[in-house]
């Protein structure tokens, strides 16, 4: 067995809203192995960001978080603000869709990287500056020593995302969480950023959690993938297994809905994503599932080993084999 760097167990996150409590994450289990690139997919509102914001301790205080998140053995749920500050940027880093919001507009790029280095490591100013230039080089920024003296507004969107990655990996974290890091970028720039992320993963052995809605991105870079629906992990496996023989009806539906060359007619998943203020009982997918039976409304399925996948479907064993998407 490979070493687990991040183990999430029975995570619940509830927000108090004017319309009542909203449980965005509802008993989620998820593992990240050392050095792997784990993709996380799921439709908008399925709880992807909330899960990892909870992991980072970045949710607003009014969010109620319970369960267990172990980062290399260290419990993060219930950790003090001081403990979380020491974890963030050192063992665990996160990057987002909009790189500009992560950068300070009035500080030079190099200074921002040096600050991140010196807040967790005992380095002299000149050592940190030198390391900052190396990091810019690692993420593929040309003329890094000149660029280190520039400000965020002098960088294009793709270059800013590289800078954000440089800051995130400055202290060689065990886990890098990337939440839709290429969604705001053009496809040719997305290809560059995905390459940088893969390079970081390979060169430093960083485990990467890549949140995306794009199954193409998953197929390109991920080793394993987790599929989320209504605040739960509904299926998990290697990309080859998952694309070749998806087991969960939602995973099947997602893969079948995509346009592919030569396909005559697209196959949508019927219905609409659940209202998380009042999610369906039992398996939350039962309102849209073509295989739903009475039992699905009453029983909350947990992840169970099914061939080489983990699947949360009470009927997984009875279902007809899925078509292959690999």
């Amino acid at each position: 067995m490979t070493e687990k760097v991040l183990e999430i167990r029975d995570l619940h996150v509830t927000f108090d809203t004017p319309a009542g409590p909203l449980e965005a994450v509802r008993g989620l289990d998820l593992d990240v192995s050392a050095g792997e690139l784990l993709g996380v997919v799921g439709e908008s509102g399925s709880g992807k960001s909330v899960t990892f914001l909870a992991t980072m301790g970045l949710l607003p205080v009014r969010a109620r978080v319970t369960g267990s998140v172990l980062l290399a053995g260290e419990q993060l749920i219930g950790a003090s603000a001081k403990q979380m500050r020491s974890v963030r940027g050192r063992t665990l880093s996160m990057i987002f869709q909009d790189p500009l919001s992560a950068l300070n507009p009035v500080h030079r790029i190099g200074v921002q990287i040096s600050e991140m280095l010196r807040s967790h490591q005992d380095l002299s100013a000149s050592e940190a500056d030198k390391r900052a230039v190396e990091l810019l080089d690692i993420v593929g920024i040309p003329q890094p020593s000149d660029r280190a003296r520039q400000y965020p507004h002098e960088f294009s969107g793709g270059m800013r995302q590289r800078v954000v990655i440089a800051i995130a990996i400055a202290n060689n974290p065990k886990v890098l969480i990337a939440d839709e890091p290429t969604t705001a970028l053009d496809v040719t720039v997305q290809a560059q950023i995905l390459e940088v992320i893969e390079r970081v993963q390979e060169r430093f052995g960083t485990a990467v959690v890549l949140i995306t809605h794009d199954l193409g991105v998953i197929a390109r870079v991920a080793d394993r993938v987790n599929v989320m629906y209504a605040g739960r992990n509904v299926e998990q496996g290697t990309i080859d297994s998952l694309f070749d023989h998806p087991s969960h009806p939602y995973t099947r539906g997602l893969l079948a809905s995509l346009p592919r060359p030569g396909k005559q007619r697209l196959k949508p998943i019927t219905g609409f994503p659940p209202n998380m203020l009042n999610p369906p009982s039992g398996c939350a997918f039962h309102t849209r599932c073509e295989f739903a039976a009475d039992i699905c409304k009453n029983e909350l399925p947990n992840l169970v080993g099914f061939g080489d996948l983990l699947t949360a479907c009470v009927r997984a064993r009875e279902l007809p084999k899925s078509e292959s998407f690999a």
């Binding site: 294009s156 969107g157 496809v187 997305q190 197929a219 694309f243 690999a326």
Partner: peptide, 22 residues
């Protein structure tokens, strides 16, 4: 540059990596 939702195809593809931005 467009990622295709099929791991086998993705591994077999040769990609043209454009430099810089528009």
């Amino acid at each position: 540059a467009v990622p295709l939702p099929d791991p086998k195809t993705e591994r077999a593809r040769t990609r043209i990596m454009l430099e810089g931005d528009v």
